[in-house]
Every structure is written in C-alpha cells, then in structure tokens.
C-alpha cells in the first residue's frame, strides 16, 4: 500500500515535470498561462459578445468566469490525459509489471494539481485586485473540486480502458468535452439559459459541482440538496463503472496496444 502511494506520488511528479520540462518559462507559465487564458475569454465574452450578468447583479464577469473556468480546465484535462494515459505509456506496460490504474490516477491527479495551483494563483490575483471573494466558502470549493475529480477519475478509467480497444475515442473526446463545456454554465450564468434547456443544466452534475465552487466564493447560488445528492450519486456511479470496465479490460491491454 505504501509502495503504491509512493509510486503514485512519483508518477504525479513525473507527469507534472513532463508538462514543464523544456519550457523556458517553467513555473512562471503556471501564472502567465491562466491569466492569458482568462484575458482571451474575457475579450470574447465580455467585450465582443457582451454576456450580461444582470440577473446576478453585483458580480463581476471576470470573477464569475474565473471561478468556472479553472475547475473546468482541471476536469476536462484530467479526462483527456487520463484517457490517453494507457496508450501513452504503452512502452512501460509491455515491459514492466505495474498496476495500470496508477497511470490514470497520476494523470487525473496531476491535472487537478496543476490547474488547482493555477486556480489558487488566479484567486490571489483577483483578491489582490480588490474583488470580493468569500474565503469562508473554501470548504464548498474543496467539495466541488473533489466531486469533479471523482467524476473525472471514474470517466477517465472507463475511457482509458475503452481507448485501448477503440482508437476513435481519443479523437472524438476533445469535441465532446468542448460540447460539455458549453452545456455546463461556464461562460454564462445558469439564469440566462433558456427555459426549455434549463432541465438539462439542473441535471448536469458538473454544473452542480461548479455551482458549489462559485456559490461558496460568491456567497450566492449554492446548489440545493437534491442537486448535490444527484451529482454525488453520478460521481460514485462513474467511479464504480469506471473501475468495473478497467478491471475487466486491464489484463488484456497488452494484446491491443
């Protein structure tokens, strides 16, 4: 058990190092990257498309966007990296005996660590810039991130196993995630969603988790209990299904890689 944890820690470290290896900016990119991304999205949505927040008066769009964007980055990147984790490490899998779940775990964990750190930096910048952030709501943030991470891990396990057999998954996944981003209120407040699509958002577990994060820090709009139960149930179901699929398929990975 101890050994597994130290291996996981090592793989997470390795994954993160790999991301920044060979970049001149290295750690600085952690701050510059998120801020550039935020600026780009701000330009498009606040200046060009003029997304209005009148229903949630008092909030700045910058804060609103930032609080949704980073958790989503972590979620979507952890799924993408987790899905390719097995194929990317095909060389390792054919040569050394290891618990293959570890590779998916490391991918998910490192994506959440990298974007979590980016998130913290953005929050610090926002706070220093004088925006109102309710730091007492941090437990909600952690709950939201944990929910997202759990869901992402379950999905990544199933997808990683399936991607070994079906090459299509990797190529379609980016588009599906983009669609998911638009169907989850990231760029616009839930109140702006037309009534006929509202049911979807209220059933979208990702919207619930992001709602926790935003609601906690902005002191309004926390998801209700039924939403939390639903999203929690989805996360656990994703985890169970992911583990089942992975366990069934893992002994045969080497045959199809």
């Amino acid at each position: 058990m101890n050994l597994l944890i130290s291996l996981l820690a090592h793989f997470v470290q390795r994954e993160i190092r790999e991301r920044f290896l060979g970049t001149v900016s290295g750690g600085a990119w952690l701050l510059i990257g998120p801020l550039l991304t935020l600026a780009a999205y701000l330009f498009v949505f606040a200046e060009v498309m003029k997304v209005r927040l009148h229903a949630d008066a008092g909030d700045s769009f910058v804060v609103f966007l930032a609080l949704g964007l980073w958790p989503w980055f972590a979620f979507s990147e952890s799924i993408l990296r987790g899905t390719t984790a097995i194929r990317q490490n095909a060389a390792l899998i054919g040569k050394i005996a290891l618990d293959r779940q570890l590779l998916v775990q490391a991918a998910v964990l490192s994506a959440f660590l990298i974007h979590g750190l980016g998130f913290v930096l953005v929050l610090i910048v926002l706070k220093l810039s004088g925006y109102a952030l309710n730091l007492a709501g941090l437990p909600w943030v952690l709950l939201g991130l944990a929910g997202l991470a759990l869901t992402a891990y379950g999905l990544a396990l199933a997808l990683a196993a399936a991607a070994v057999f079906l090459r299509d998954i990797e190529s379609v996944l980016a588009q599906v995630l983009m669609l998911g981003m638009l169907l989850t209120p990231i760029f616009f407040p839930p109140s702006q969603i037309p009534a006929r699509f509202a049911w979807f958002v209220s059933f979208n577990p990702l919207a619930v988790w992001i709602g926790c994060i935003r609601g906690g820090l902005l002191e309004r709009g926390l998801p209700d209990a039924s939403g939390l139960v639903l999203a929690g149930g989805v996360a656990i179901a994703a985890l169970l299904i992911g583990r089942f699929v992975f366990r069934r398929a893992a002994p045969h990975f080497e045959d199809y890689l």
């Binding site: 399936a162 057999f165 079906l166 699929v245 069934r248 398929a249 045969h252 199809y256």
Partner: peptide, 9 residues
C-alpha cells in the same frame, strides 16, 4: 476490437 471490448466487459 469493438467486439473484443464488448466480450471482455
């Protein structure tokens, strides 16, 4: 491959 995945599951 699809058939293999299905039978494994």
């Amino acid at each position: 491959r699809l058939r293999a995945l299905t039978s494994l599951l």
